[in-house]
C-alpha cells in the first residue's frame, strides 16, 4: 500500500510555506518561466516585421525622356530587400507624372480610402479607384468620392538621365 504523503500528513514547512504550497509554487514558477523563455524567440520572430524597418533605396524607374511634360505613366520598381522566393510580389507600381522639364511627381497607386489600385484615365485627366469610385486630380488631390487624403507621393529625383523613386512602405492611411 502506497503511503500517502501530502501537506496534511507531512506538515514540513519552508519558511512561511508548507510543503504543498512550496511544491505548487515551484511547479508554477518552473512551468511559467520555461514557457516565457521558450516564447520569446517565437513571439519575437512573429512580431519582428513590425520592428524592423526596410532600408529605403533609390530605384531607377524611367528615363527622363520616356515621358512628355504632362504625361502620366505607370512605373514598376522592386522592394529594397526582396525575399528570394517573393517573385512578382517583390515589385511595386507607382504613377509617375512629368510636370516640367526636370520635374516629376510619383504617386502611390494605392487609394487612400482602402488601398485599392487607382487607374489613370488620360482622357479625363483623373485617377479613379475601381473599388468605391474615389477620384483624384492629376496632382493627386481628391476630386470626388470617399478618399480622405490625397494620393501618397514617393520621393523622386533625377540622376543623370534616370528618374529615380525612393522605396517606401505600403502607405497605411489610418
Amino acid at each position: 500500500m502506497t503511503e500517502r504523503r501530502d501537506s496534511q500528513s507531512e506538515p514540513t514547512t519552508f519558511g512561511p510555506m508548507n510543503r504543498r504550497q512550496f511544491l505548487t509554487s515551484i511547479s508554477l514558477a518552473a512551468a511559467g518561466l520555461s514557457a516565457v523563455l521558450a516564447g520569446v524567440p517565437i513571439v519575437g520572430f512573429l512580431v519582428s516585421p513590425l520592428l524592423q524597418k526596410d532600408p529605403e533605396v533609390w530605384r531607377a524607374v524611367a528615363k527622363v525622356n520616356d515621358l512628355q511634360v504632362g504625361e502620366t505613366k505607370e512605373v514598376v520598381f522592386s522592394d529594397p530587400s526582396p525575399l528570394p522566393w517573393a517573385g512578382v510580389a517583390a515589385d511595386t507600381a507607382a504613377w509617375l507624372r512629368r510636370t516640367g522639364s526636370q520635374d516629376f511627381v510619383a504617386f502611390a497607386i494605392n487609394c487612400t480610402h482602402l488601398g485599392c489600385p487607382v487607374n489613370w484615365l488620360p482622357q479625363a485627366n483623373l485617377f479613379m479607384c475601381p473599388c468605391h469610385g474615389g477620384v483624384y486630380n492629376n496632382d493627386g488631390t481628391v476630386a470626388a468620392g470617399p478618399p480622405p487624403e490625397p494620393l501618397v507621393k514617393y520621393p523622386v529625383r533625377i540622376n543623370g538621365d534616370q528618374v529615380e523613386i525612393r522605396t517606401s512602405p505600403l502607405p497605411i492611411t489610418g
Partner: peptide
C-alpha cells in the same frame, strides 16, 4: 492590401496590425 488598410484604421495600434498582416512593410515574400 484592403485588409491591412482596414486594420490600419484602428487607433494607436492600427499601423502595427497592418504590418503584422503584411508580414513586413509591404506585400512581399513573407
Amino acid at each position: 492590401v484592403v485588409g491591412a488598410e482596414m486594420a490600419g484604421k484602428a487607433p494607436i495600434v492600427g499601423d502595427l496590425i497592418a504590418k503584422f498582416l503584411l508580414a513586413g512593410q509591404t506585400i512581399g515574400g513573407a
